[in-house]
Amino acid sequence: MKAIYALFIFCLFSQLQAQTIKNFNLKDTQNTTHSYEGLKGAKLTVIDFWATWCKPCVKAIPELNIIYDQFKDKGVSFIGINCDGPRSVAKVGPMSKSLQIKYPVVLDMDATVKTQLNLSAFPTLILIDQKGKIVWIHEGFVSGDEKEIIAQIEKYCNEK
C-alpha cells in the first residue's frame, strides 16, 4: 500500500513539474493589477503561495526575504501569492508590512492560480524557468529548508 501511495505522490509531482505556468493577472493590496509576465524573472521566478493564518508561511517569509536579497540582481524574481479568502484578506497588507516582505505580493482570493496548479499545502514554493516550466516544488517550511531553496535556485540559475 505504501508503494502505491509513494508512486501516486511521485506521479503527482512529476505531472506538476512538467506543467508550464499560464500568465495570470492578480491584484495587490493597493488594488493594482499585476501579471505574471510583468513580474517574472529573466532567468528564474520563485513563487511563494502563502496565507496569513499559516505559521510555517510566516516562518518562511523572513528567510525568503534574505534569499530574495541574495538573488534579486541575478535575474531571479520573487512573487508572493497570498491565498487568504475574502474574510481575511484585510490582514494581508498589515502582515506584509510587519514581515517586511521585499518582493511583490498579489492576492489569489478565489484560488484561481492555486487551483490551476493543483496546489493544496501552505506554504508551497515553486521555481519557474524562463520558458515558464515549473522546475521545482517545495511544500511546507521548517528551519533548514532555506538551504535547499538556495541550492535549487543556484542549480536552475546556472543551467544554460
Rank of each mutant, 00 (worst) to 15 (best):
L39Q: 08
G41S: 14
G41K: 05
K43F: 07
T45Y: 00
V46E: 13
D48R: 00
D48E: 11
D48Y: 05
F49P: 00
F49S: 01
F49E: 02
W50S: 10
W50H: 13
T52H: 09
T52F: 15
T52A: 06
W53F: 14
C54G: 07
K55V: 15
K55I: 07
P56T: 11
C57L: 08
C57Y: 09
V58T: 09
V58P: 07
A60E: 11
I61E: 07
I61Y: 14
P62D: 14
P62K: 06
P62E: 13
L64E: 10
L64W: 12
L64A: 15
L64C: 06
L64V: 13
N65Q: 15
N65K: 05
I66M: 10
I67A: 14
Y68D: 14
Y68T: 12
D69Q: 07
D69N: 13
D69S: 06
D69Y: 14
Q70E: 12
Q70C: 10
K72P: 06
D73Q: 09
K74C: 09
K74L: 06
K74N: 13
K74M: 11
G75C: 05
G75R: 08
V76D: 03
F78C: 04
F78L: 12
I79T: 01
I79M: 01
I79Y: 01
I79R: 02
I79G: 00
I79P: 00
G80P: 02
I81Q: 00
N82T: 02
C83L: 12
C83F: 11
C83W: 03
G85F: 08
R87E: 12
S88D: 11
V89H: 14
V89K: 13
V89N: 14
K91P: 03
K91D: 08
V92Q: 01
G93I: 03
P94T: 05
M95I: 03
S96R: 01
S96C: 03
K97W: 13
Q100S: 04
I101F: 01
I101M: 00
K102I: 04
K102Y: 11
Y103V: 00
Y103T: 02
V106F: 05
M109D: 03
D110G: 10
T115M: 10
T115A: 08
Q116H: 05
Q116C: 12
L117E: 02
N118D: 13
P123I: 12
I126N: 03
I126A: 08
L127H: 09
I128S: 05
I128N: 04
I128C: 10
I134C: 07
V135A: 12
V135Q: 10
V135N: 09
W136L: 09
I137G: 05
I137R: 04
H138T: 08
E139R: 03
G140M: 07
G140A: 09
